[in-house]
Amino acid sequence: MAMLEVKDINVYYGAIHAIKGVSFEVNEGEIVTLIGANGAGKSTILKTVSGLLHSRTGSIAFQGENIAGMAPHKLVGKGLAQVPEGRAVFLRMTVEENLEMGAYTRPNSELAPHLDRVFEQFPRLKERRKQVAGTLSGGEQQMLAMGRALMSSPKLMMLDEPSMGLAPILVDQIFGIIQTLHQSGTTILLVEQNAQMALGVADRGYVLETGKLVSSGTGTELLKDESVKKAYLGG
């Protein structure tokens, strides 16, 4: 049984049919990536899985339970965490408060050990723990968004374009962290426009074009695929 099984979802923005019958799955322990151009519907799919948007059809099963239509705040407790598009850290709250919000569904007694673990992973955040998140750099905000998602000890972590707007050296760093998280047992669903990087770390990938899945395969397969190369990897 797959950890996350998305079957035939159709999502609309008003009259616009944004996601057209998409199905995919993420198995426990995998890094799976959804790649595609801007506006292909990658973020829409993540938002649908996390309950912010709803599909008119199909099902979304997380660890065997149908979660389609469930309120987003109920999913965190089930082990699903999302690092949202554009980071979406709470800019007027401190680094530590942001992390506390990540552990909102956990009992207070777990807060300190979780904080220690995240600070170990992201020493920079520890230095800045009392600082307001709005004063952090883009890379630091991305680390905060990831640390915040980790605070709930998720089984599945979904990342929405973690490389967006970051300098190449930071992108490398962020992808290094994703691999470390994966090695420590977190299953990862990664949405990326940076297909090269994403396919490089992913076990499997799906290619999305204007709301439809057009191909899928292992990371290495897709990296070698001629049409993928042409469309996303600069020939």
């Binding site: 709470f90 909102y104 709930s152």
Partner: peptide, 21 residues
């Protein structure tokens, strides 16, 4: 915790929901 949740919701409703608020 509740007060911080209020601030989180006031700043970014969808991100707050993703925290389980």
């Amino acid at each position: 915790k509740l007060g911080k949740a209020m601030r989180a919701v006031s700043e970014n409703m969808s991100a707050a929901q993703l925290m389980g608020i």
